[in-house]
Design a protein around this nucleic acid. Structure first.
Lengths: 125, 125
DNA sequence: TATTGACTTGGAGTTGACTCCAGGGAGTAT
DNA sequence: ATACTCCCTGGAGTCAACTCCAAGTCAATA
């Protein structure tokens, strides 16, 4: 799979994909003999993973750390699990904040709808 | 309430509070006659709101727009509701992505726990 | 009244995560 | 074999959102 196909499939730019590889958010991608990236199944799994984690705000730093540990082999299993658990704490916290904000937004919007129907606005902010 | 007290209460820096005010994420804060910020109930409501929205990744730009509309008065009620609905779409989308990432993390972590118990690792990434 | 510590401003600097670009190679269609 | 479109690299540039700083003011205490 060429870089372009991956871009289209995941709606991400080629620059970002190359950047991820360069800094180590994903391991080095398979290449053709002339040096062109040829994303195999495994490479794509890493790309998918990176996109998923980044979409939840997991810092690039942590993804790099994970890949590094992964490449060190089975002796880092526990360290990887610990890292994932640390990531999870952060994501869970953010998830709660997003939910709280959703609640607040729903409340505010309903007040606005009310105000628009009745013409009454008994509040601020 | 002094800026320091607000900082401590919301675990935010004074620089950030001043920045929010400067760019218009919150309206101008009440001052003492000598020009020192004295956060009143209403000011604090705005601060709380800003922190909540920012914690869900709502762009500063949108908060500024909201405050601007608010200050234009009742004629902008509908515009404000529309803005909030636009914000809600973004937050909802992010909320889903966070949930998806949580699921993935839980799955990965459980696989690691499994591997640590059994010593078997039949997977990658 | 002198020091201390918190407050003020405007502007410059930092950070994380991309995003763009110049200069050059490669593979296919005409 | 020329054009066209894609690909490559290393490095510089951009952007949002802070974060820091210098230089000065203010208020409470020794």
């Amino acid at each position: 799979m060429t870089i372009k196909e991956v871009c289209e499939r995941y709606d991400i730019t080629a620059d970002t994909l190359r950047y991820y590889e360069r800094v180590g958010v994903i391991p080095e991608v398979t290449r053709t003999k002339s040096g062109i990236r040829d994303y195999r199944e495994e490479d794509i799994q890493w790309v998918e993973n990176a996109i998923c984690m980044r979409s939840a705000g997991v810092p690039v730093e942590m993804l790099i750390e994970y890949v590094k540990l992964f490449q060190e082999g089975d002796s880092t299993i526990e360290a990887r699990r610990n890292l994932l658990m640390e990531v999870r704490v952060g994501v869970q916290e953010k998830l709660c904040q997003y939910q709280e904000t959703m609640d607040k937004l729903n409340f505010k919007i309903s007040r606005y709808e009310e105000a628009m129907k009745t013409g009454v606005l008994s509040w601020e902010a």
